[in-house]
Design a protein around this nucleic acid. Structure first.
Lengths: 273, 273
DNA sequence: TCGATTCATGCACGTTTATGCACGATTGGG
DNA sequence: CCCAATCGTGCATAAACGTGCATGAATCGA
């Protein structure tokens, strides 16, 4: 009977399920593979011992994505950024080619992308690339060059040359300041240059911006507020700012508020009774 | 009798079955070739020893194209890799330009680099780049291009073009298999091509290799064992393997015993012929 | 041509492995 | 606090395993 699975194949499939679904339930696996739950539990125990998953009551979860200390910025107001991210990922549609700029909010967007989304993502940020590597459906393109460690991405001459060749359907810009008059701005000269370049070649531009950046201007201009720009803001953004952006034609989207508790890995396991 | 198969023919057919079906069962093969299961088991054992397949209970699987993503591999035997890393970082000296290849052991090396080391590190692996971003003394250069998610790095045409321009002082290669005869080998064709390219342009080459990879050969050759190569191995590496490497002129270094009474931080031991 | 040697193969034996079942302990929601 | 689901462990069993040995065919040297 070739329908029987070898032990290794079963474990391999479990790992695949973990990657794509973000979780597995012992009972489901037992039914699917037609073995007893004891066997599945043994598999999961061994995989957990090998560091391939985390055992939990009822099943298993993927190993905690190293949480690699990166930016203290990413640790800052994570639930606000997660809310912005949830509101933003909806604009990334199947089949699109999307540029994901550097920035902690964009990192949250990367993490919020559905595991099975099929799209091409281009980024100049290693941390975002690393996060996206967990999503099996994506084609990933990395823009290289000298890494600017304050920006956390490649924004130099080499990166700009690559960026100039790129015409994404959507450009998701990271932003250091956003003001109705000054437009979107950045702290670093080369970063601003890079953003301007990639945004100018994109069919549409999106920026998810936390409220603390509204009404502020960083030293270097990126792009002005115009009808090709879509802004995703928090629910507590000042009405005056929203009105000013809208007056210049930008499409403004508010992220749903509330969403108080963000579940653990973003992949909660639910035991239904 | 033309229906009888020579040993070579049988093995060849088994390999074909492995490629097409992704697995073979000892019992099926025995019935199909009209030989005893013992014979099939012997065949599979020999093929596994030659690195042509992976032996599992009940049959065999193709050689692990399925070793998992880079972040998953990094979770495997982390203390062994950390020991190798401690023994390896000593060869990265102040002022050097170093290429850090993809691989979970190399990720450990990246993490083990002293925070204040002043050097230029080039990598094609986002995860390694992200780890190195925490070390303020380093200049970082990222090699971009399409990301291969099984390798966890950029190894395609674009990356190879960039790599061809690079002449690092030291190339730290990731390795999928290491054998005195077959040399260093890799699972993926383009990855092997990339490694060969970058190694050939380097003044010296280093590879830190866990014991489980010794004596195995992956499908694609990278470089042979020669005097320009320095191998960092674990303390429990088979003496025969060490001798075979040394006999071909490679400099072999043993990482200090991980547990117990290592006098200092993994003080390496030079082996001389 | 003949004996020695090598080698692939099959068989017998004891060992290991994967799996399922039974039982008592643990967990977590209500 | 209770109850049901889930868990870990010990045990039994059948399949798969490795090893040692015998057989027969092919190869080699003289």
């Amino acid at each position: 009977m070739s329908t029987e699975l070898l032990l290794r194949e079963r474990k391999s499939l479990i790992r695949e399920r973990l990657r794509t679904d973000g979780r597995v339930l012992a009972a489901d696996l037992a039914r699917e593979f037609k073995v007893s739950e004891d066997t599945i539990r043994r598999d999961l125990r061994e995989m957990a011992a090998a560091g391939l998953c985390e055992r939990v009551y009822g099943g298993a979860l993927p190993i905690a994505p190293d949480a690699g200390s990166l930016s203290e910025r990413a640790a800052l107001a994570p639930e606000r950024k997660a809310a912005l991210a949830r509101a933003s990922v909806g604009f990334i549609e199947r089949g699109m080619t999307v540029f994901l700029d550097a920035g902690s909010t964009n990192l949250a967007i990367a993490r919020a992308i559905a595991p099975d989304l099929s799209a091409t993502i281009v980024t100049n940020t290693p941390l975002i690339a690393a996060a996206l590597m967990e999503k099996p459906g994506l084609d990933l393109i990395l823009i290289g060059g000298t890494l600017d460690r304050t920006v956390g991405a490649s924004v130099g001459a080499r990166a700009q040359r690559d960026a100039a060749l790129l015409r994404p359907d959507l450009c998701v810009l990271g932003t250091c300041g956003a003001d109705a008059d000054a437009g979107l701005t950045a702290f670093h000269f080369e970063d601003a240059e890079f953003k301007r370049l990639i945004a100018s070649g994109s069919r549409s531009v999106l920026a998810a911006i936390t409220t603390d950046k509204l009404g502020t201007a960083a030293p270097h201009a990126v792009i002005g507020i115009d009808p090709a720009l879509r802004l995703v803001l928090e629910a507590d953004a000042p009405k005056a700012q929203i009105a000013a952006f809208a007056a210049q034609g930008a499409a403004v989207v508010l992220a749903g508020e509330g969403a108080g508790r963000t579940p653990r890995h973003g992949n909660p396991i639910e035991i239904t009774t």
